[in-house]
């Protein structure tokens, strides 16, 4: 249910080299051009959109590695 919103945010803030709608949920976002600096903007936008806060232990490269992983993380934090 969060995947569409995550895709919107990724489009706006991910600064990817390939269009988001051409990516699978499991595609590697770093291969698609996601930089570690861009993940900061992505994280902030996700926090704002879903009213969540990423704890330090979730701020790893892996959390933002694919749309699927991001959706999982958001789900986990929303349920908290």
């Amino acid at each position: 249910m969060y995947a569409d919103k995550v895709r919107d945010i990724l489009t706006q803030h991910g600064r990817l080299s390939s269009p988001v709608d051409q990516l699978q949920d499991t595609s590697d976002l770093y291969n698609a051009g996601l930089t570690s600096l861009a993940t900061v903007g992505l994280m902030l936008a996700l926090e704002e959109q879903f009213n969540i806060e990423f704890p330090d232990n979730m701020l790893s490269r892996k959390t933002f590695a694919s749309i699927e992983f991001i959706v999982d993380a958001v789900q986990k934090l929303v349920d908290k």
Binding site: Q12, H13, G41, L42, L44, A45, E47
Partner: peptide
């Protein structure tokens, strides 16, 4: 700063 940044993440 984080609250400010969230309003305009780009």
């Amino acid at each position: 700063v984080r609250e400010e940044a969230r309003r305009n993440p780009s």
